[in-house]
Amino acid sequence: MNITKSILMLITAAWIMSSCGEASVDVKNESYEPRIVIEGFLIAGQRNVKMLFTKNFRVDEGFTNLDIFLDLETTEASVTCLDDGKVYELSFIVVQERDEVKEAYWGYQGSDFLVEPGKTYQLNVSAVVEGQNLSASSITKVPPAGFKITHFNHDSLVYWQKDENGNVLNFEITFDLSADTDFYMAAIQALNPTLKTFIYDNPYGDVEEEDIDLDDDAYKNAAAFNLDPSIGYGKLKLEWYDFSFYDDYRIVMFATDQNYREFLVSFSNVMEIDGNFHEAKFNIEGQGIGIFGSMIADTVYCKVLDK
């Protein structure tokens, strides 16, 4: 057989192969390993510490809230104040209202635990997950006192309101800084979001009613970071894309520790736009993922009005 004929045969074979329709993807999640998921935030001035410890789950399987709870019998958790060595054992607390579970979390039953600015705390959690003894620990230093909101420029604004010169007006928070703290965040919460009060006439995207997720769209984060400590104060301008409803808003501004900063800017971006992945920064030792962070918070309220 000469080479030309061989090539023609190859072409035919290639044709057949390339015509084979769809490449199927079978996600087996071979790299799955059980982990303790920590959602632990310490807020300065807080006595009633609330944390959640759950487990991770396979990416190819569904989950319910019950699936991910750790086995209460094998789970132990405590927070230690490293400044004075005092250990606060955490227990699982269920808050009920009219026979319905209103809230469930890991907290401290006593009244002698006060989260204090500038102090350092260590969280230790251990549990048996899928037959494996897992443990995780993390340390956070609460930002020092100093942070507070000093000025909020508007109580209310019409959506995309402009001044007499045509400049767009925005809400802006002015705040004092905490020492050695370079990350400040505003948690912007629409208080009564409905499909009717959603801002459809917005410049960010053509949204239909069925595209709206009230849970997701009602809450936004905005951050100011790496601010100049020598100025002594910071400003955070809230862009209009932070507001999706004509509504009343609660804005909790808080100064955070490094753990929280690294968690927040990395955990939701691990999947890159082109399908690549990278690891988040959790700052948790052992078999744990999630966040153990701390903050000092202050709150303001505002209203976004319809045109």
Partner: peptide
Amino acid sequence: TEPGSAYVIASSPFDPY
């Protein structure tokens, strides 16, 4: 990359979801 696992978490202590 196949993610090792998934988990549920809030983005801040003030995030209700």
